[in-house]
Structure formats: structure tokens, C-alpha cells
Amino acid sequence: MTSTMRRTAISAVAALALATGLGACSSGSSSSASASASSSAAAPKLSGTVTVFAAASLQGTFTDLGKKFEAAYPGVKVKFNFGGSSSLAQSIVSGAPADVFAAASPATMKTVTDAKDAAGDPKVFVRNTLEIAVPKGNPKHIASLKDLAGSGLKVALCAKEVPCGSAAATALKTGDVNLTPVTLEQDVKAALTKVELGEVDASLVYRTDVQADSGKIDGVDFPEAAKAVNDYPIAALAKAPNTNGAAAFVAYIQSAEARQVLTAAGFQAP
């Protein structure tokens, strides 16, 4: 396939994706599948596997959206690799055969764009804010960020190297709260697990994580979180083995149908 041909193919897919998005916008989620099926007759038919590298915090929603995408494009399989955004970015730069990258922070996406491994500019598709995660029933009566600095309270934060940790640092700085955590966890799920097991009294995690674990965890909102919002960018990758599939998936994630699933899980629209 020559490069001009490929470019035509990309623009055709982009047009198709736009049509899908619009279709979903106008007529709700149930009809979007049929809308895309009819328009895919004109565009190059999608096939094969779309491999998506996505941030761990997207696991629940993206697994769901992957199934919906497969239903909308029969013959296409979506394969996910969920993990820490930073390590995913590292493996993409090192040549992992991925089609799409969805990161939990612009900084981790930058690793990929700096290496010229993204096709086009990344698009922010959702935002995530922090919440204080406390054991069910909030036994220590934590109501604000300042309460976390109280004596005798054990708090887990994410390490500053991972997105949730840098967001937590920003929030604490905004609220001028001087907090010494007992541990700096390697990812947000680990910080949440420490609350779940009762080893710490609170931790700063994403709203979506609290919502996904609402059976065992309660969330406490705090105003400083507004200053520490994490943008989630998504991009098709330059060396994607399945160029058409990658573009279609990126467009689908930005569709109204996908947004509905994401906001229902606690994400905010950009």
C-alpha cells in the first residue's frame, strides 16, 4: 500500500467515524450500531484485531466499550492491554505492536508523541478528578482534605511518578495541606486496596475508582480536587498494524455513546 493510498484510507475512515459519531449524537445508543453498519459499506471494511493499550483506570469502561465496538463493526476484534500509563508508553516507544494508546495523563502521552509514535495529535476524551477514599461508613469522619493531616491518621498516596500521585501533590499544595503519608503506592489500585484492607484510614484516588468499588469504599469530595484534574488523551499510533481499525476506535471513544458509558462510570466530559 503506497502512502497516498493509506492517507486516503485514513481520511475515509475519519469520515466514517464522524458519521458514526453524529449518528450516535442524533439518535441515541441503540441506533448507532446500525448507522455505522450502513456507512461502513462505503468506506473500506474494517477487519482484523485492534490492539488498545489503555490506562489501568480505564479497565472497566474500556472493556465494556470494546464489546460495543465489536458489535458495531462485525469482524473486528478488540484486544486490550491495561496497565500503568507510564509503562505502557515505555513499551509503545520500545516497539510494542499497539494500534491505540489511551493514557491517564498528558505527560505519559508526551512520551509517545515525543518519539513520533502517535498518528496525529492526541485528543482529550475524558477527565478524572480525585476523591478521598475511606472505608465504608467513614469511621474516622473525614470531611475535608485538611482532616487527612490529623494526627494518628494513616494515609496512602500514589507515588509522585504516577499520574494519580502528581494530581494528589497538586491538590495538597492547592489546599496548603502538609501531609506525611505512610506509603507512596505504585498505582491507584494499590492505594485503594490499602483502604479496602483497612491498613490505612484514607487515600487519594480517582472518583472512578471509588465508584467502581462502591461496595467497600466511600468517597469524600473536596474542593481542591478541581485544581488537580487529570486529562485522558487518546491517539492512534503511527506504527499501528491496523491503521483503519485504530482510527475507527479512537473516533468511537469520542462518540456520544462512548461518552455516556464513561460519564456513567464517574469520568467527566472534557
Binding site: 496512602a156 507515588a159 503519608p181 505512610v182 506509603t183 507512596l184 503506592e185 505504585q186 494499590a190
Partner: peptide, 8 residues
Amino acid sequence: ITFAGNFP
């Protein structure tokens, strides 16, 4: 990292 956590 699971049992003892991580603090410099």
C-alpha cells in the same frame, strides 16, 4: 511493596 508499602 504490598506488605510494607513504599516510603523513602
